[in-house]
Amino acid sequence: MTACKNGQNSKKTTPENLEIYKGTASVTQGPATVLTENIFECDRGREAPIGISTATDGSEWTVPAEVNFTDDSFPFASDLFNPCTKVEYASADEALAALDGTDIIEVDSDGEVVTAYVFADNYFEMYINGVAVGKDNVPFTQFNSNIVRFKVKIPFTIAMKLVDWEENSGLGSEANRGQAFHPGDGGMVAVFKDAKGEIIATTDANWKAQTYYTAPLRDLSCASEEGTLRLSETCSTEDSNDGTSYYALHWKKPTNWQSADFDDSEWPKATEFTNNTIGVDNKPAYTNFIDVFDNSAADAQFIWSTNVVLDNEVLVRYTVE
């Protein structure tokens, strides 16, 4: 269903407000114009809108991100645990046994099959050497986890788009805890195994992570940049019942960020977050697979940019040697 819904700002952006922001992002204020009310229906799931925010410099930004969820040419990942489809496996072995091989995406014809296990809050798109190999089955909630299988030669480069979705389009927030504007958190964890079942990569601080959409910000002065770091750690993350005048920051993504030869050397390192910080103890999409994600010999870490609450679109990369 599509609809136009123009946001009404309770406070106007002024030159004085903009002057206090010294970063490289485009600045928007207030709600986005909603283009699609909900791109996915799920029982007891939140609506996942797509909107357009217009910045003070005239640029337009798709929020929370430009995604390929409705693009049939971009393959869906396989379900590991998905309350929306009612495909809920009790173990990774059970989920693998249900696959018939048609899910495997060929990157290299003479490569080996690599299996990735992914839990993303909320949404991911994965590329291997620039080839689209799998996208999340659920853009927002309920919380789910996925398997992605692809055939590739080592070394190979993983590139992922990560999105923390929003109910309040353009304002990086949702209704929660009795408040209309709650800035929810993100987080992604993944484990990659070779054809022998050996772990060849896990998410950790050795990955690179860059931020491209930060919201909501009550005050532009709290945001700063240090080199390529886009920082918001001093910004408020408190809930509110009136966030319609809050700001958002948007950065343009490189056109070839998915490719193996993209130079990410200047990107910041990913930040690690604990299971407790992300809050997965009550989510069977994660807890059913502790033996995979929290393997005693190779414990995968939740990663994101520096701010797991306010940064809503993050690109991450890692090369498996």
Rank of each mutant, 00 (worst) to 15 (best):
A3P: 03
A3V: 09
K5I: 12
N6K: 00
N9Q: 12
T14A: 04
L18T: 04
E19G: 08
G23S: 06
G23W: 09
G23H: 07
S26V: 03
T28I: 03
T33A: 06
T36M: 14
N38K: 00
F40H: 09
C42K: 03
I50E: 08
I50N: 01
A65Q: 05
N68R: 02
D72H: 11
S78T: 01
L80N: 05
C84W: 10
V87C: 07
A92P: 14
E94C: 02
L96T: 01
G101P: 13
T102G: 06
I104Y: 15
D108N: 08
G111S: 01
T115F: 11
Y117N: 00
D121F: 11
M126E: 00
I128L: 04
A132F: 15
G134K: 01
P139M: 08
S145A: 14
R149A: 05
A159W: 15
V163G: 06
W165D: 06
E166M: 14
E167P: 07
S173H: 13
N176W: 15
R177D: 14
V189A: 12
E198H: 10
E198F: 11
T202K: 13
D204S: 11
N206V: 02
K208T: 13
Q210M: 05
T211P: 03
T211Q: 06
Y213F: 13
L217Q: 00
S221P: 13
A223P: 07
E226T: 09
E238F: 15
D239S: 05
N241P: 09
T244P: 07
Y247C: 10
K253E: 15
P254A: 02
W257K: 06
K269L: 14
A270D: 04
T271F: 14
E272H: 04
F273R: 00
T274V: 04
N276V: 14
I278W: 04
I278Q: 00
V280C: 09
T287P: 12
I290W: 15
I290C: 02
I290G: 00
D294T: 07
N295P: 12
A298T: 03
A300V: 02
L310E: 02
Y318G: 00
